[in-house]
Computed example of a mutant assay.
Amino acid sequence: MKSVIVILASLFFTTGLMAQDYAVDQLENSPRHHEWVDVEYNGRTIHNFVAYPETNEETLAVIVIHENRGLNDWARSFTDQVAEAGYIAIAPDLLSGFSDEYERTTDFPTSDAARDALYTLDPNQITQDLHAVREYISNVPASTGTVVVAGFCWGGSQTFRYATNSDQPEAYMVFYGSAPDDPEAVQQISAPVYGFYGENDQRINSGIPAIEEMMNEFGKMYEYEIYEGAGHAFMRAGDDPNADEASKAARDAAWERLKGLLEEIIM
């Protein structure tokens, strides 16, 4: 019986690694410049993956907020895709400095452990981390100073939450993340929020009517698309070469929408 359990665990672990292989391949074959940058403030250090576009002009910057498994290979590969589209992209590891044993996402023994740790983070710390990362990336020489925030799953929720805590970013791109439910917080939003949702994700989509009503009531811009047949995390699922048709179609449509919105911001 023990041998069966070991074999099943091994297969599960191997499948998980294979699921990220396409992201690793994409990163390793990218011609763009990647670097790890430490952003420090108040004695705290945040580890960040940064990707630069191949361009001769200054560009806006996109902060990429990872899913609830931390800064994994897919989050880094998406950051590189943003750079491929022509923008500086920075992905902070919000598990930075979690403990002496777990300094960053890759230190955790499993993605489940990373997920569990994320849900214990102090929301105010997350806000301050994002402030520091925004300040850093808006001031790199290759940046125009304009910053957009995009997040996925847990990161989508943090993106929407950050919109209530900062008046600096130009826009917020919320990919299948829950919305704030505090009217006083929503009133603080000062930039457009764009939502990207999968049709088969009612856990998240059930909250859309309430936030839409609040955003309209307070005169805030909130525009969203719901992609037919797609479930939660369709951006990651749709990147997989073996993706189902609905996930791939949703990912491609959302990607084109995102690029279009970024182009509008820089015009």
Rank of each mutant, 00 (worst) to 15 (best):
residue 143 S to L: 04
residue 190 S to F: 05
residue 137 I to Y: 01
residue 135 E to F: 08
residue 146 T to H: 12
residue 256 E to C: 01
residue 136 Y to T: 01
residue 136 Y to I: 04
residue 148 V to D: 00
residue 207 G to C: 08
residue 209 P to E: 06
residue 136 Y to Q: 11
residue 152 F to D: 04
residue 240 D to G: 06
residue 240 D to F: 03
residue 167 D to W: 03
residue 134 R to Q: 13
residue 226 I to E: 10
residue 236 R to N: 09
residue 153 C to A: 10
residue 208 I to K: 07
residue 205 N to Q: 12
residue 192 P to N: 14
residue 207 G to Y: 01
residue 169 P to Q: 05
residue 198 G to F: 05
residue 178 S to E: 11
residue 194 Y to G: 13
residue 186 V to Q: 06
residue 244 D to V: 05
residue 250 A to M: 05
residue 224 Y to F: 15
residue 239 D to Y: 01
residue 206 S to D: 15
residue 240 D to E: 05
residue 230 A to R: 03
residue 164 T to W: 03
residue 192 P to T: 11
residue 248 K to W: 14
residue 213 E to D: 14
residue 144 T to P: 06
residue 219 G to P: 00
residue 256 E to R: 07
residue 222 Y to C: 07
residue 155 G to P: 05
residue 204 I to D: 00
residue 185 A to Y: 02
residue 231 G to P: 04
residue 257 R to H: 08
residue 247 S to L: 13
residue 249 A to Y: 10
residue 147 V to Y: 13
residue 161 R to L: 05
residue 168 Q to Y: 07
residue 137 I to S: 06
residue 183 P to H: 06
residue 189 I to H: 12
residue 204 I to P: 03
residue 144 T to C: 10
residue 242 N to V: 02
residue 210 A to S: 13
residue 256 E to V: 00
residue 256 E to K: 04
residue 223 E to T: 12
residue 220 K to F: 05
residue 217 E to P: 00
residue 148 V to C: 11
residue 179 A to D: 02
residue 175 F to N: 12
residue 249 A to G: 14
residue 172 Y to Q: 04
residue 134 R to L: 08
residue 229 G to L: 11
residue 180 P to E: 11
residue 142 A to T: 11
residue 184 E to Q: 10
residue 155 G to W: 02
residue 159 T to F: 02
residue 192 P to M: 06
residue 240 D to K: 11
residue 187 Q to L: 07
residue 226 I to K: 08
residue 146 T to W: 08
residue 178 S to W: 01
residue 241 P to M: 06
residue 135 E to S: 05
residue 155 G to R: 00
residue 245 E to Y: 09
residue 253 A to N: 13
residue 181 D to W: 03
residue 193 V to K: 10
residue 243 A to G: 12
residue 138 S to R: 02
residue 165 N to S: 08
residue 252 D to G: 09
residue 143 S to F: 04
residue 186 V to D: 03
residue 209 P to A: 11
residue 161 R to Q: 09
